[in-house]
Design a protein around this nucleic acid. Structure first.
Lengths: 145, 145
DNA sequence: ACCATCAAGACCCTTTTTATCCGATTAAAG
DNA sequence: CTTTAATCGGATAAAAAGGGTCTTGATGGT
């Protein structure tokens, strides 16, 4: 099957959470994010550690600590976040090792597959956290009406 | 990570093998296909049993038996084959259960993700075994030059 | 000094993937 | 009718990935 891993999903939603409270003075702590996004706290914590290591967020320790976005939401693409969590997408084994197809001739499935991934990735690459946050805010307003 | 399962890859290549020898009088037996496509024979055998159950191939038993395409190569899309092997693609868990996002408001990632999948699937859906076989034959010729 | 918070990693459980094996069944050929 | 080469299908299993918990330690406001 072909779906986003839970890790990636949590990460995206977590970062989006931060992006939507952009401008807030205090950092957001894991417990709050976990509750808001309905994710296991301990697990989310680990994911954010990875995100910190990769430069997406900065951690603030001690009381009133938590996590803050380390980059501008407009500069973070959905693709980046997902790839940070699950490694490069779409490394089709058929594309990696030579000679997987008879007589070393490149198998015709490659091109089609490559074409499909390109279109898929482009969409994810042109979608930034800022844009998502804006859309999210709009939806939240509609929901309250 | 995000790649085609080996099962799907073997199945696609196996069917393509049949499509490329379309018009041959005798069915192809598993051992031959497995050798040509460099797949474990026992495993491929089981995959073909599934493919037979789903109507892609017909099995011929007894000596000189094997498998034959049950449908016209022009009618079989890449997407069909892949979905037959790994279940419906792209059932994003975020799209399945309601209430995964705060306050039930649809999360803005959904649309982007949906958009991306649509473009991806379209490519796979418009690619038929016949077309792939034709391309494969062309490549094989070039390789021999 | 205390306590809330993050940091890091060890550990565990479950599911999926990727197979292998073997006995039963089938049917063409001699 | 018997031989023989093939598929059928279920049981089994090793290995990898996925998903998550817990513990222990470091850090920095108050």
């Amino acid at each position: 099957m072909f779906r986003l891993s839970r890790a990636a999903e949590y990460a995206v939603r977590g970062l989006l959470h931060l992006a939507m409270m952009d401008g807030a003075s205090a950092p957001a702590d894991i417990e709050t994010i976990a509750k808001a996004q309905d994710a296991p706290k301990a697990y989310l914590s680990k994911l954010f550690q990875q995100l910190a290591k990769k430069g997406f967020v900065r951690s603030v320790r001690g009381p009133v600590g938590g996590f803050v976005l380390a980059r501008r939401p407009a500069d973070i693409t959905l693709l980046e976040v997902i790839e940070a969590m699950e490694g490069q997408m779409f490394l089709n084994s058929c594309l990696i090792h030579e000679g997987c197809c008879p007589r070393g001739a490149a198998c015709p499935v490659h091109e089609v597959w490559g074409d499909a991934q390109k279109k898929f990735l482009r969409v994810l690459q042109t979608s930034t956290l800022a844009r998502l946050a804006a859309r999210g805010r709009k939806k939240a307003e509609k929901g309250r009406e």
